[in-house]
Amino acid sequence: MSPCVVIIPAGGSGSRFGGPVPKQFSLLGGVPLLHHTLRIFDAHPRISRIYPVLSAPPEALGLDWPFSSERVQPLACAGPTRAQTVLAALQTLQPLHAPDTWVLVHDAARPCLSRTALDHLIHTLQDDPLGGLLAIPLNDTLKRQNDHHACVAATLDRTGLWLAQTPQMFRLGSLIEALCAHPAATDESSALEAAGYAPRLVMGESTNLKVTWPADLRLAQAILGVRHAHRSRI
């Protein structure tokens, strides 16, 4: 299998979160949320390098950094959008990795990705010519808001709709080309879709939540606590 590297965009301000620090640096069980996310990949034998993409070096941000400098290598090239941040990281890495290198892009604010889901993604896509993403089918009824008030304008057909998650796993060369051509893409898959490709949907898990609001931190803490208790009993 081609090598796997991970890019974690972590330069955003987290404006919707509304905390005193960007949400990726908020404490989860006394540890910055970003550190939980990094440890998921740092413990995986198929991952050769992890590149958190920050707005400045960790020391300039006042971050404690308990990671191997060889395996986890911060990049201080975050841009104003996710697509610009990922593209800047890819262009930095392009001289260091072959075009067929697998790149897994993962949200800094998804600290509950399980080893099972990560293994499933890598195993499913390792021989795929393009790549794909973790996602789950949309089970809830979907409503569209009207233009003027928070009232229902319509109920939408959810048939065939999936909720996109991360990691999203694509080849370095094709991902650079897609993001260069489609800089307004909201995620990596949408850039590849706009380039005419059909990324593969890989079944994820509902516990792979993205921390968006302060209450999500409590839910993430509960998920991680249950997993820790389970491991302790084994």
Results as ranks from 00 to 15, higher is better:
H149Q: 14
P66W: 03
Q91D: 13
H120P: 00
S55P: 06
L179G: 01
L134P: 14
I50G: 03
P20W: 02
Y197L: 04
A185Y: 05
F170L: 06
R46S: 12
E193K: 08
F67T: 02
H182F: 13
L27H: 04
D157Q: 12
A194K: 09
F25N: 05
P111M: 06
A150E: 13
C112R: 03
P167E: 07
P9R: 09
H228K: 11
L175P: 10
P3R: 10
R144M: 15
T159I: 02
P74A: 09
L38A: 00
R171V: 02
L133I: 11
D119H: 06
H106K: 07
I122P: 00
S190W: 04
G160M: 11
Y51C: 08
D127S: 12
R233T: 11
L179W: 06
M203P: 01
N139E: 15
D107H: 12
L142A: 08
Q165T: 12
H97F: 15
P99A: 04
S174P: 07
V21C: 05
L201W: 13
L87P: 12
C180Y: 00
A88L: 07
T101K: 02
H106C: 08
G204S: 08
H123E: 12
T166C: 11
S174Y: 03
V31M: 07
G12T: 08
C4Y: 15
I234A: 14
L163Q: 14
L96W: 08
L54I: 04
P167F: 08
P52W: 03
E193G: 01
P80D: 15
A43T: 10
A229Y: 02
V105Y: 01
R115I: 07
W65K: 03
D157R: 12
Q168A: 10
R144C: 11
H35R: 09
H97I: 05
R46Y: 06
D119Y: 00
S15L: 15
I234W: 09
A83K: 11
R46E: 12
A98Y: 05
T92A: 15
S206D: 09
A194E: 06
A108C: 10
Q91C: 14
G132R: 06
F170T: 02
L209N: 07
G12D: 14
T81H: 03
K143P: 02
D42C: 06
C77W: 01
V152N: 11
A195F: 05
P32C: 11
L63I: 01
R71E: 02
R218D: 15
L61Y: 06
F25A: 13
V226D: 08
L38S: 01
